[in-house]
Amino acid sequence: MQDLSGFQRDLLYVIASLDRPHGLAIKRELERYYGKRINEGRLYPNLDVLVEEDLVRKGQKDRRTNYYELTRTGVDDLLARHEWEATKLENVEEFEGKEAKTQ
């Protein structure tokens, strides 16, 4: 997980939030978040990396459409990342409390 790019981690979060999304559904969700167009030439190679790392499973919905879902490893790594991020935000929460008191 530590070797993933921010974009790849965002892909994991999007896949986790949707029920077996196809590539274009993932693309649309990321475009909403980023506020700009995501190139398919960037999307699919990064999805392939996540599949190769056993973080995501790729299946076939029909002859033309694949779906993506997190593997057990992907879920575990994403949850561990979430816990780690939460510990790093503790100071931010304290800062916000101090800010509110000074206003």
Rank of each mutant, 00 (worst) to 15 (best):
S5K: 12
R9D: 04
Y13T: 02
R81N: 03
R81F: 08
H22C: 11
D77I: 03
I38D: 02
S5Q: 11
V92W: 10
A86C: 08
T71C: 08
P45A: 11
R63P: 04
D10R: 11
Q8P: 05
K58Q: 15
N39E: 14
V49N: 07
K61E: 10
T65C: 11
G23N: 06
G6R: 10
V14H: 03
G35P: 07
E94R: 15
E85L: 15
D62K: 13
V51Y: 05
L12E: 00
D77K: 09
L47Y: 00
L89N: 14
R20N: 14
H22E: 10
A86Y: 11
D48K: 15
F95I: 14
L89G: 12
R81C: 02
R42Y: 10
E40C: 02
L12M: 11
L55T: 00
N91A: 11
K61G: 06
L70T: 05
R28S: 10
G6K: 08
T87W: 08
H22G: 07
V75S: 04
E29Y: 00
G74Q: 05
D76L: 15
E85G: 00
L43P: 01
E94A: 15
T71E: 07
L11S: 03
E93A: 14
K27W: 01
V51Q: 05
L18T: 00
G74N: 06
E40G: 05
Q60K: 14
H22S: 09
D54M: 08
L50Y: 03
E90L: 14
V14M: 03
H22Y: 09
L78P: 05
S5C: 10
L12T: 02
I15L: 03
D19E: 14
N39W: 06
R64A: 15
E90V: 15
L12D: 01
Q8C: 04
G6E: 12
A25V: 04
G59N: 12
L18G: 02
E85K: 12
T71A: 08
N39G: 09
L24F: 06
K61N: 13
Q8L: 06
I15M: 05
V56W: 02
R81L: 12
N46F: 04
R63E: 15
G41A: 07
